[in-house]
Design a protein around this nucleic acid. Structure first.
Lengths: 338, 338
DNA sequence: AGCAGCATTGCAACCGGTTGCAAGAAATCT
DNA sequence: AGATTTCTTGCAACCGGTTGCAATGCTGCT
């Protein structure tokens, strides 16, 4: 069938070990044998079988990439970056889609059977307990886009959702909105809870600003639209902080469908800065998650754990940034003191 | 480190073969040994190492999933469905991102090293030659979303782009548009070429309809928008068939930004029916690709090749469907004869 | 009881590699 | 040149499983 070590060894007239060594970084082979072997390998089109070697080396270079966010446009970027960065480092992503089941046990079993070197859990909606199952199995794990906690039990890298809530609130206040709303995702998602907490941290300190909060049933267009339509039936706030960009677009759609306009009638600020947010016909003001850095950092962490499995759990936070576009009214002109 | 066959064998007081056999479908083991082994395995938390067994069985249950479409929202659905369907059949997707390089050689090498059982190339922009590299290496391969040809050299499943072009043309004609345009993706993409061919097949037969064609530099929002802005500077057609939904949304954005409206001033019909197309604030009339069926069929094909590697190459076509939404003017009322 | 026939089991070889070890070859030193 | 050190190399065992084969145990039959 396929060309093996033995075939190359025979053709080159050397032992199997010699062939193995020519293909092993830093092993002791003379230039003469190396050349013979390389010639034979080239002739035969030999490539070492990564799986067979993993048996003795204990390294597969496979990284489990687990996610349940297959409906959020941001995650197309996320997958793109993850797969590219992993590839660039000689690692291969083994993708696990958690859409059906949130049971870590199955995916753990699966990834153990394939002896992945490490696991990246890429999800903002999975609880911090999820990655712990991998940790207990001694599999290096990083929770990417996970919830920040001060003393994490497993590595987590992401943003500070509480701080994002604060940023959103400050942004709305600075623009002079007097009645504002929080439109979150699912009530029990940690990201929703944290973003809301930060939002009310700041709003609560403002006596002249009133705030409401409501929750969409999912981080989806439909849920955002439905929730906003409901809000529009009552007296809506002047501006909303939506817990996510897709939610925001749903809300914007509801606003437009009701014959209103953003930002003139109602302001909206999202979170994520997904690719579509910058599209001119959406033009969403939002809070950008530094996706690129989160991903690079996650991969750094997981690879560093390959060398040092006992590495102490760490939480890495990245700052977010307000991206000014067209769905919030502009800042009032600064008063020139004189 | 991890629990192996030997550990279980020792604890159960049987040979390693006995353990192996209890975990092999259809092997001969007495109920008594099976029970002993299962008990021991449970106690120890044993799971067979899939990679080790692949050495002797020649099956890894790994399927290479290769794509270069990490910027098209449709592909988030595609990845979702592929990963789920593969998982449901006990197969694991090994994802390869071709964004950087279109060189099949590297990915071929990589996937061979991991002895994948089969490969699915999921891309509408890669040439039919690409999958052939895998075929030559005797790796079962299916080109999903690939170009239809009558005597394919490798399995291909997708839609008939020529027919889609025809459908688009007929749809525009039926709505009474007299000047229409084809707004394609990259000039040399096979999908663009075919869609254009079909479109002009039908339009060319109509004497009273005039048609133009132009090409965006990529299947992207920006490219679609840029191209439409350019078209709007001259005298634009009454309606456009855009080679893709993202392109369509870009075009729609350009139309709106120019103070025009769809469908009142200019009609647009897309292709794909990505998730966002149905969003109320986009509401794109488009041609739906039966993504679900294409994917299921692709997996069927690739798995059937595992059993019969010599299976004759086959092209599977799925019919597309016009999805009526709000970016084309309605059909004129049928005349009631009487 | 004796025997044929089938099911179960362990041995040992194998899958495609890696690696510790000792022996032989080459290089360096005195 | 001879002694010593360092490089190379092949042998053989091993990684965690699978599987053909022959030996054994069990069943049912006459």
């Amino acid at each position: 069938m396929s060309v093996t070590l033995k075939d190359v060894a025979k053709r080159a007239g050397v032992s199997r070990s010699a062939v193995s060594r020519t293909f092993t970084e830093g092993a002791s082979v003379s230039t003469k044998t190396r050349e013979k072997v390389e010639k034979a390998a080239d002739d035969l089109g030999y490539r070492p079988n990564a799986l067979a070697s993993s048996l003795t080396t204990g390294r597969t270079k496979l990284i489990g990439l687990i996610s349940n966010n297959f409906h959020n446009p941001l995650f197309l970027q996320v997958f793109d970056l993850f797969t590219r960065s992993l590839q660039d480092r000689g690692l291969r992503p083994l993708l696990v889609n958690l859409s059906n089941e949130t049971d870590p046990v199955n995916s753990l079993r699966l990834l153990r059977q394939y002896s992945v070197d490490g696991v990246i859990v890429a999800s903002s909606t999975l609880p911090p307990e999820f990655p712990l199952a991998f940790q207990r199995a001694r599999i290096p794990v990083v929770h990417s886009f996970g919830k920040f906690v001060h003393s994490p039990r497993a590595h987590v890298v992401g943003i500070d959702n509480i701080e994002c809530g604060r940023m959103a609130a400050r942004t709305l206040i600075a623009r002079g909105y007097k009645s504002v709303g929080f439109l979150g995702g699912p009530k029990n998602a940690t990201s929703t809870i944290d973003r809301r907490t930060g939002f009310f941290d700041v709003i609560g300190a403002q006596t002249e600003v009133t705030a409401t909060s409501s929750f969409a049933t999912a981080y989806s267009f439909d849920a955002g639209r439905a929730e906003m339509l409901a809000l529009l039936k009552e007296k809506p706030a002047e501006a909303y902080f939506c817990g996510d960009d897709v939610l925001s677009v749903g809300a914007l759609s509801a606003i437009q469908e009701s014959g209103l306009r953003a930002p003139d009638d109602i302001g909206v600020i999202g979170l994520n800065d997904m690719d579509m947010a910058r599209w001119q016909n959406i033009n969403l003001t939002t809070i950008r998650q530094p996706v690129h850095q989160i991903i690079d950092s996650s991969i750094d962490l997981v690879t560093s754990m390959l060398d040092d499995p006992q590495r102490h759990p760490e939480a890495r936070l990245f700052a977010c940034e307000i991206i000014e576009r067209g769905t919030l009214r502009p800042l009032p002109k600064a008063k020139i003191s004189g």
